[in-house]
């Protein structure tokens, strides 16, 4: 497989450029861990103090939708991994198709999430003036639970949107590449990002859906 372009400056060879891209993405993901980490800290601290309220509020999330979303996202990571494989083999048509699949699954995730949010708002679970909760004694920490729910899954959703845009750009490149451009590293780097978002969800899922009280 030949490259149409040599390494772009300031790099002197393509391997150097590829490695720099990988290092850049891993460092970026580390910063993302620290972003979400701060929120995880707040969650775990509050969950420790308001143990019962969090268990009660956790029962109000939709386990079915959450589990469904988890499956969708895991599947999308599979298609993404396959897409990266195709890219490394220079099979741009397969890359395009698998990226498309990943994007469809990612969009499905966001659609389900939107549905969930709409339901929660309808049930008065949006923190703020319209928040209602029974039993009233647990209302305040329950509101805190849902605040963290919306902030953390919302931040996650924003990352998903960015990821979808990224995959779209990559897909367009794959369409026009015809084996002339090596998309292995761009795909790998996008894949790392996508998998990371998946991993974040794998933590969010038990935190917000599996912490259920009696």
């Amino acid at each position: 497989m030949t490259d149409a372009s040599a390494a772009s400056p300031p790099f002197t060879d393509r391997e150097q450029q590829r490695e720099a891209a990988r290092i850049g993405m891993w460092v970026f993901l580390t910063t993302e861990v620290m972003f979400f980490g701060a929120l995880f800290l707040v969650y775990f601290y509050d969950q420790h103090i308001f143990h019962d309220a969090f268990a009660s509020a956790g029962g109000r999330t939709d386990l079915g939708l959450g589990a469904g979303n988890t499956a969708v996202l895991l599947l999308s990571s599979l298609t993404m991994a396959l897409a990266v494989r195709a890219a490394k083999q220079g099979r741009d048509r397969a890359l395009f198709g698998r990226l498309l699949l990943t994007m469809i699954l990612g969009s499905a995730f966001l659609a389900l999430k939107g549905l969930e949010y709409a339901r929660h708002i309808h049930e008065g679970l949006l923190p703020g003036a319209s928040f209602v909760y029974e039993p009233a004694a647990l209302a305040r920490p329950a509101e805190l639970f849902f605040y963290l729910y919306f902030v953390m899954t919302g931040l996650h959703a924003v990352h998903m949107l960015v990821g979808l845009a990224w995959l779209a750009v990559l897909a367009v490149r794959a369409r026009g590449a015809d084996g002339r451009v090596d998309l292995g590293t761009p795909a790998e780097v996008a894949g790392l990002y996508w998998h990371f978002i998946d991993v974040v969800w794998i933590f969010l899922f038990p935190m917000f859906y599996l912490v259920r009280g009696h």
Partner: peptide, 23 residues
Amino acid sequence: VLGTPVLTMSLVLIALERLFGIG
């Protein structure tokens, strides 16, 4: 890279607390 994101989140939480009155 390791520290700044935590400051970012701290200030986001302050801003959200001001906006939405969550405790």
